[in-house]
Simulated scan of single mutants.
Amino acid sequence: MPWFLYLLECADGSVYTGIAVDVQARFAQHANGTGARYTRSRKPVRVLAQFELADRASALRAEYRVKRLTPRVKRALAAGERTLDSVLPAPPEPSGRAQPEAEAPA
């Protein structure tokens, strides 16, 4: 089941980052005051962007990274000036590569 990372613009100009399976339902919760504590005092105005991820674990990892970005970079991400991949760490390289065999001394 896909999960989504979403960015909300709040009334004070800040950008909130969260994850959900249904972004519109989650936005409604934030808007009516039953969402995160952060959005209770900074009413959400609109969804700036949403990004589909494969599963909850991937969404949580992405959320962790995006929450540490500056508001300027989050807005660039929402505007399409940056990609989600560009702000996430590169996946680890496979460790199963064959190493060349050392030649035995003659």
Rank of each mutant, 00 (worst) to 15 (best):
Q24I: 12
V45G: 11
K74N: 09
E9L: 04
R46S: 14
E103A: 03
L48K: 00
S14M: 12
P89G: 05
P44T: 04
E63Q: 11
F4H: 07
Y64T: 13
E101G: 08
A98L: 14
Q29M: 06
P105S: 01
P89H: 01
T39S: 07
A76H: 04
L53V: 12
N32W: 15
F51W: 03
G13H: 05
K43F: 15
K67Q: 13
G96R: 02
I19C: 04
V21Y: 01
E52Y: 00
A11F: 10
L7F: 01
R82A: 03
N32H: 14
V23R: 02
P71T: 13
N32I: 12
V21P: 00
S58A: 13
V15I: 15
R72H: 05
V66M: 07
T70K: 04
A59L: 10
E52L: 08
I19Y: 07
P100N: 09
L8E: 09
E63T: 10
R75M: 09
N32G: 06
M1Q: 06
R65F: 11
C10P: 11
V66N: 02
S95T: 08
P100T: 07
G13V: 04
K74R: 15
R26I: 01
E101F: 05
L48P: 01
I19T: 12
F51K: 02
E52G: 14
T34W: 03
T83E: 07
P94H: 05
E63S: 06
L60N: 06
E103H: 02
L60F: 06
L8S: 07
R61C: 09
R65P: 00
C10S: 11
T39L: 02
A57H: 11
A59I: 08
